[in-house]
Amino acid sequence: MNYWLLKTEPGTYSWDDLLRDGRTFWDGVRNYQARNYMKEMKSGDLALYYHSVNEKRILGIARVVKESYQDPSTDDDRWVAVDIEPESTFEKPVTLADIKGNPALSNMVLVRNSRLSVQPVTKNEFDLIIEKSKN
């Protein structure tokens, strides 16, 4: 299993939207590196769901339920989408400040290259964030 972080602007598609819908496709990614990560996603992989802009916090975990396919928002075959479902909501959101304040998370892609909307997360990073969401 692989672990990921998906970034979204809450005004575009929030965690509450995903909970309401129960499933969605993750589309509109127009960065080659983020697209390549999406192509690596496998059904069953878990993704931290991160609200960017003003919130800058992880609210829950989504599960990949359909691997990459042609992005339905464009005819350009360079771009892909994946389907996700909500897995669980955090008891306590984990903020970017929480992450930056933890030396064990200093190498996260979120800290080093925060602009990527789809990024890998190590199992250790994933586990540390889950633990932080329970405190």
Rank of each mutant, 00 (worst) to 15 (best):
P93W: 05
V82W: 01
P72F: 05
Y13M: 09
L59Y: 12
K66C: 11
V82R: 00
S73W: 07
E40D: 15
P10G: 00
P72D: 11
G60N: 04
I99M: 10
G11Y: 09
V53L: 10
K100Y: 12
S73C: 11
K39T: 08
L48M: 05
E9T: 03
K100D: 11
H51R: 07
V111D: 03
Y37I: 11
D71H: 02
Y37S: 02
V109I: 12
D76K: 05
T74E: 04
P10D: 10
E87P: 03
I58R: 04
D16P: 05
L110R: 02
E9K: 04
S73M: 13
P10Y: 08
H51F: 03
E9N: 12
D71Q: 00
V94L: 06
R115S: 06
N31L: 02
Y13D: 09
W15K: 09
V53S: 15
Y32A: 08
T89Q: 14
V94Q: 07
I58Y: 00
D17G: 13
P86N: 09
N36T: 02
S73Q: 11
Y50Q: 00
Y37E: 09
W26P: 10
R78I: 06
K56G: 01
K66H: 13
D83L: 08
D71N: 01
S73G: 13
S106A: 15
D83Y: 09
G28S: 05
E91F: 09
R63F: 05
P86D: 04
A62Q: 03
K7F: 02
Y49A: 08
Y37A: 01
M108H: 02
A62I: 00
E85D: 12
S73L: 14
E87W: 13
N31M: 05
V82K: 03
S52C: 06
